[in-house]
Amino acid sequence: MSRLDNGAYIDAAADLVGLPLRPEWRPGVARFVALAAGMAEVLDRVDLDDAELVQAPVYTLPDMADDRD
C-alpha cells in the first residue's frame, strides 16, 4: 500500500481521533491498516446494486408496556 508508506494518513487519522501512537507501535498499526485496505479492495470488487441498501445495525424502538392507540 504505497499510499500508506509515509504514514501521513495514520498520523493524521490518529491525531483526529485523539489516539496516542508510540513510535514502536506504528509499524504494527501500519501493517494492520494495510491489511484492512486489502479487505476494502476485496469489497470494492463486489458489484453492488444501488438498490442494495440493507444496512446493519438496524435501529429498532423497544416495545413499551404502556402502549396506547
Binding site: 481521533v17 501512537l21 507501535w25 491498516v33 491489511l35 440493507v54 444496512q55
Partner: peptide, 25 residues
Amino acid sequence: TRDRFLAGALLPAAWVARAQRVRAW
C-alpha cells in the same frame, strides 16, 4: 491485540459502511 485495535480506530467510514452492504449481499 493493541496494534490491530489501534488500526481499527483509523479506518475510513466508507469502508465500514460498504462492509455492511456487502454483508447483506
